[in-house]
Nucleic acid binder design. Structure first.
Length: 354
DNA sequence: CGTATTTGACCAGCGC
DNA sequence: GCGCTGGTCAAATACG
């Protein structure tokens, strides 16, 4: 599983998983079904994160601070990989990897193999199998193999789909506006951009993240009463998209999935938001470019601001989550010392201390 | 009136 | 081939 969870006290939950860079496959449940089940949002002391596929098969479980001793599955969280492998080709992975202090060993890091079906895939599948054999019934799906394919596809270069590049150019050249009838030559497989998903506890669906988005679609989600909304970045030539949906298992949680990387500055930063700039630009994760331009820093702005000044909590802002008492293990939660993130969490924890 | 949203139709991929 | 599903398009509509 490709997943990393970081939790900042209980102010907000920040979960990143990645499955992008490929065509959707049903064998990658995390691609579209990031079911988050936890009793910790709200301050319960035992954080666990479980991911289920459509058949409710428990694929993996682990905690951010220590693997739950009572859960044998936690002892082998599976072949989840690091951001470094996930984001290859777009960010400073070493920095990022250090920033998150990836808990997996190097052997667990699945490096996308550039020549298809290469050794990394075999390795990943092997690990997946090993994990499956140890963790009960094998999952019918393998997000790992999917990711390998994804990586290969990603390597092919950018999309040829019209809305990804220059739609007008494409239309003029091929005049394929006539969707029916004369079919144009077979489209190349559209590579998936890397994707990040964030689970945010919020009453509003579309969280302000500093960028400007235009909604271009909405679909009903299978097995969910909540629709999924599709947004595109409104900046010209920026192909970043995001999907927003609400977890039907926990309707208080909004799942925001970003795809692609912004090729421009965050408009919020350009607006001269000093507070935002102070928090956002100095490198949310160790270095200004550690995450990459697409990282929605501003998604966490309200929480960050409140961390720094909890007294200014604004109950009218649904993004403001009130700090709650940290359980001992959260207080002992050790983040790697990589700059601001550590500072923020520590300062926050210290403020909570009596 | 320009821009954003809504929404039904369409397309592609996949499983059967 | 057919049906299902996710993703996208684009005309219609709403909004400021």
């Amino acid at each position: 599983m490709h997943c990393q969870i970081i939790e900042f006290g209980f102010d907000f939950l920040f979960l990143i998983f990645l499955s992008g860079m490929s065509d959707r496959k049903n064998d990658d449940p995390f691609d579209y079904n990031p079911f988050y089940i936890s009793d910790n949002v709200g301050g319960v002391s035992h954080p666990e994160f479980r991911f289920f596929d459509d058949d409710s098969t428990n694929l993996s479980m682990f905690t951010h601070h220590q693997q739950a001793p009572h859960n044998p599955q936690a002892l082998n969280p599976g072949p989840y990989t690091s951001f470094a492998g996930i984001l290859r080709g777009s960010v400073e992975y070493n920095t990022l990897s250090r920033a998150f202090d990836m808990s997996c060993s190097s052997s667990e890091v699945i490096t996308p193999n550039l020549d298809e079906g290469g050794s990394s895939k075999k390795c990943a599948v092997a690990e997946s199998s090993a994990a499956a054999s140890e963790n009960g019934p094998p999952s019918p799906s393998s997000s790992v193999s999917s990711s390998s394919k994804e990586a290969a596809v990603e390597e092919d270069g950018h999309s040829s789909k019209k809305d990804e590049d220059d739609p007008k150019t494409e239309c003029n050249e091929n005049d394929d506006k006539s969707k029916k009838g004369n079919k144009p030559k077979k489209k190349e497989k559209r590579p998936r951009e890397p994707r990040f998903a964030f689970l945010t506890k919020s009453e509003i669906d579309h969280l302000e993240d500093g960028y400007r988005w235009r909604k271009y679609g909405q679909k009903a989600v299978k097995n969910s009463p909540y629709p999924r909304s599709y947004y595109r970045c409104t900046t010209q030539k920026c192909t970043v998209k995001k999907r927003v949906e609400r977890s039907f298992q926990d309707p208080s949680i909004v799942i925001t999935t970003y795809e692609g990387q912004h090729n421009h500055e965050c408009p919020a930063n350009l607006r001269g938001n000093a507070a935002a700039a102070a928090i956002l630009s100095p490198s949310f994760f160790a270095s200004p470019s550690a995450i990459g331009p697409s990282f929605p820093h501003n998604l966490f702005l309200p929480q960050l601001l409140q961390m720094r000044n909890p007294n200014r909590a604004d109950s009218s802002n649904p993004m403001m989550f009130y700090p709650q008492t940290l359980a001992p293990q959260q207080q002992q939660f050790q983040l790697p010392d990589h700059g601001l993130l550590h500072d923020m969490v520590n300062s926050f924890v210290q403020k909570k201390e009596p």
